[in-house]
Amino acid sequence: MSAKDEILGRIRTALADTPVTEEVPREYRTTSTMSQEQLIELLVDRLVDYKAGVEVIEAEQIPEFVASKLKDASSVVYPQGLDARWLSALGSEVELRLDAPGARLSVAELDATSAVVTSSAVSVAESGTIILDGQPDQGRRAISLVPDHHVCIVPVSTIVQLLPEAMPRLSITRPLTWISGPSATSDIELERVEGVHGPRTLDVLMVRGL
């Protein structure tokens, strides 16, 4: 008998008393009561609490703010689907590295890249969570992981208050990365400190009119 058949057989034996299933009481909140301004304010508050850098800006200010956040970077990786105009104000000394299908940067190259700029799919204000789902303007997972500085664009139209509101906006079978602040640990005396293996600096540009 295969392990699978045996385990399934054991489950049948264990459930010989045929426990019944019940309808799940989904009485938790699933719809927001907040205006867009309140959502922005809440998300800013949460991200600042996580020690992320946050700016709320207009769409035309993106190049200027991207450049100011990356003024110390020597190289920047960006995914193929990112609006190239967003990088247009970067100084000529900053090397731009495109990561595209068929032209992937190696892990070593990513490790030698100072920063990454991506967009994002949806953000949850209440928990301060930005979700990346690997669409072309966010790229594959490695590019937003290996460089030590992540500049992430969050269009304010993609902010929801509650996690249950974010779910229908996600394609769950795409590789998803949920980011709530820069990398951190609570492993020493259960106190949160920022900066471990993932990007140690997270700058979020929340953009109106995008």
Binding site: R46, Y50, V124, E126, S127, G128, T129, R141, I172, T173, R174, P175, L176, T177, W178, I179, S180, G181, P182, S183, A184, G198
Partner: peptide, 10 residues
């Protein structure tokens, strides 16, 4: 409120 990183893969 949320852990820094959650990964889902299919």
């Amino acid at each position: 409120r949320m852990n820094p990183y959650t990964s889902l893969w299919t």
